[in-house]
Every structure is written in structure tokens, then in C-alpha cells.
Simulated assay, not measured.
Amino acid sequence: MSERPTIRDVALAAGVGTATVDRVLNGRGKVREETMRKVAEAAHRVGYHASTLIDQRLDSALPEMTFGFVLHKGKQEFYQNFANEIQRAVTARHDIRGRAVVRFSASQSPQDFLTEIAEISGKVDAIASSAVNHQSITQEVQRLKETGVPTFALLNDFAQGIRENYLGLNNMQVGRSAAWMATTAAKQQGKLAVFVGGNRWHGHELRETGFRSFVRDSAPGFHVLDTLVNLETRQVTYEATLELIDRHRDLRGIYVAGGGMEGAIAALREAAEPNTVSLVVNELTADSRAALMDGYVTMVISTPLRQLCADMVEMMISAVKNGSSDVPGQHFLQPQIYLPEAFG
């Protein structure tokens, strides 16, 4: 029978002295986190009997961090997926003892976002939110910054110049891509419609601007109708889309810049043949996937949530460890594009 691995075997495998392994095992003196990790990996590799104790020593030496997240539309599939990816990203970090607190605003009003932010602000080391752009939100972000709690804007930018960073898509570029697809897929020139959630969604305004600028510069044969506000709701989008189809026989394309795409899909299924009106939406869900396959959605522009959450947690850890940056930044991710052929 082979002999049981010893401290000496662990030390040799880790490339350290036996005294270092002893300090890790017994919690005596300070050992660098990197060295502790080497010892822990070596202990598992050689099958050392006290490897679980070394893991416990390593865990107890890691800094504790709690991250707060305030999203909205908690019942929607996209934001449920978002919350799951946040938890996954925090759990995947082995250099901290991390905890994610995810809350959902009851509505899109600034006050409801502020209520949730206030609930967690004294219990977290950093905050990220998909909040609307509003003066009261900006004031709260300033207050949080003064108390040492960095704030990150997710998907929709707010408190520019005060918040730590914006993470999401380049919304101007997203709008231009949507317009390119809507005009390219159209069988002939005609009218185009754009839905935005409301004036407080900075990201939606940028997408609308990008959409209009592309049509103006590259597809002048199309006419973009007055922008429609759908409050990111299914019912408003459904009713407005039916009206668009009824009033504009030359309607060639629709872009839903924010939420509410389910209403546009339902209206097209009811009142139009597949592939007659090009519909461009954001985020891949069960509804948008099915509509792609059935010819009622032409393109989906999707946020890479897993990458976004991993990058976000990395930035939050850095801000907690090193302090806020002197220059607020923007972190753009490359969108994922889905076409009907992807599911054919």
C-alpha cells in the first residue's frame, strides 16, 4: 500500500517550503492569497488528507463583497435570465467571497427604482442598475459615490459623469443595424415605424437616433413615421401595431427599440402574412425565437448577458478594491445577431 501524502509532498508539488504549508494549515502568520491557492491546488493534486481544511483557510482569507443589483420587469424572461447570469457570475469568482442581492423595481418610475436602491444601499459594496435617466437618480448616484459605493449603469445609461461605468450595447450602433435590416429585408420602399419605451430611457433615444440617421443617410426612399411610445408594454404595442397596419398599407418595417415586442409579434401574426413587414426586436426569448422561425421577426439584436455579467462583476471588484475611477467609462459589448436561418 502506498504511503499517505505528507506536508513535504504538498510543499514539493506547490513549489514552496514545508513551513509555508504548515502556516496555511494552521492559520499561523500571513500567507499571500496566490501562495495559499497554490498550496490548495497542490494538496488536491497529491491527495493530501487535509485538503478540505486548506480550502477552508483559503476561503476565510478571501475578502467578502456584496453587490447590489436593481433591475426592472422581473416577470419578463429576459430579466429573469439577467438575474440568473448575475448570480452565476458572482458565484464563479474564486478570488472573493461574493454575494449578489438582486431586486426588481415595481415599475419604471424613478421613485420605484430609488426605493429599491435605498433598501440595499447600506448593505452592499457596489450597486448596478438598469434605472431610467432622471435627475433624482443622478442625485442618488452622487450620494452613493460620496459614501464610497460605486454605481454602474446597465443597458440604459444614467447619471453620466457621476456613475462609475456604463455596461451594455452601443445603442446608436444598434439602431443603425436595425434600420439596415429593416430596409434591406423590405421588398419595396415605404414607411417604417419605431417604438421606444419612453423619454427616460436614454438607450432607446440613442437607438431611435441611430435608426433615423441610417435611413436618412443610406435609405432615403423610406419614410420613418413619428416615434411611438409603448411604455415597454405588450398591450400598448399590440394595439399600436394593429393601427399601423390598418392606417399605412405601405408599412414595410417596425423596430421595437425596447420592451413590448410581444405585442408587435402578436399583432403581425393576427393582421399580416409572414415576411411582409420586417420586424426587428431586441433580446432572444421564447417569443422572439418562435417569431423568427415563423417569419414574423426578421432579426433579433441580443445582449450577451453572460459576458456582460462577468465583465460587470470584474469591474465592481476592481472599484471596491481600488476605489472609483477618476474618469467614468463606457463598456460596449458586441451584440449577438440572430436571423431566421439560425433556427432553420
Rank of each mutant, 00 (worst) to 15 (best):
R143E: 08
F104S: 05
T6M: 02
A118K: 13
R306T: 13
W180K: 12
A319C: 02
H223F: 00
V24S: 07
S129F: 01
P335C: 03
V236L: 12
Q189G: 06
S302H: 11
Q334R: 12
G27Q: 02
T35S: 09
G168Q: 13
G98F: 04
T303A: 07
P328L: 04
T52V: 12
A92K: 05
L228G: 01
S121M: 10
E164T: 04
L225Q: 10
C309N: 09
V132C: 09
S213P: 07
L279T: 12
K30F: 09
A286V: 13
T20E: 10
E243Q: 14
L53T: 06
Q160D: 12
T233K: 14
W180A: 09
A186P: 07
D59Y: 10
T91K: 15
S129H: 05
T237K: 09
R143W: 03
V124G: 02
P110S: 07
A89I: 02
T20S: 14
E146M: 06
Q76D: 14
D294M: 05
E85D: 15
N84S: 15
V256G: 07
R45G: 12
M36T: 10
V46I: 10
A19Y: 03
R143P: 01
G17H: 03
R4S: 13
A100P: 03
T241S: 03
S109A: 15
I162A: 04
G47K: 06
H248G: 04
V46R: 03
E239V: 04
S177F: 11
A19D: 11
Q108E: 15
L225T: 08
T138S: 09
S324N: 10
S325I: 02
A219Q: 06
A11F: 10
G210F: 04
E34D: 15
T298A: 11
E164F: 00
M181E: 15
T6G: 03
H331G: 12
F113A: 14
D294G: 03
E33I: 15
I120C: 00
L71K: 07
M315P: 00
R45N: 10
D250K: 07
H204T: 05
L308K: 00
T184P: 09
V300M: 01
K123F: 08
V194A: 04
L231R: 14
P5I: 02
F195D: 00
Q135L: 14
Q173E: 15
S288P: 12
V327G: 00
H72A: 11
V277I: 15
S130I: 04
C309A: 10
A291F: 07
I245G: 11
L225N: 09
E33W: 08
R37M: 00
T241L: 01
V70P: 09
R216V: 09
E164Q: 12
N171D: 15
L154A: 00
L284V: 03
R93S: 01
A240H: 11
H248T: 02
T151R: 07
R4G: 05
V10S: 10
Y166G: 07
T183G: 09
I162R: 00
E140M: 11
I265D: 02
E119Q: 14
Y79E: 09
S302W: 00
I7N: 04
G253K: 08
E140R: 15
H134S: 01
P220F: 06
R99G: 01
T233I: 08
A83Y: 02
D217A: 15
A131D: 05
Q307C: 02
E208M: 10
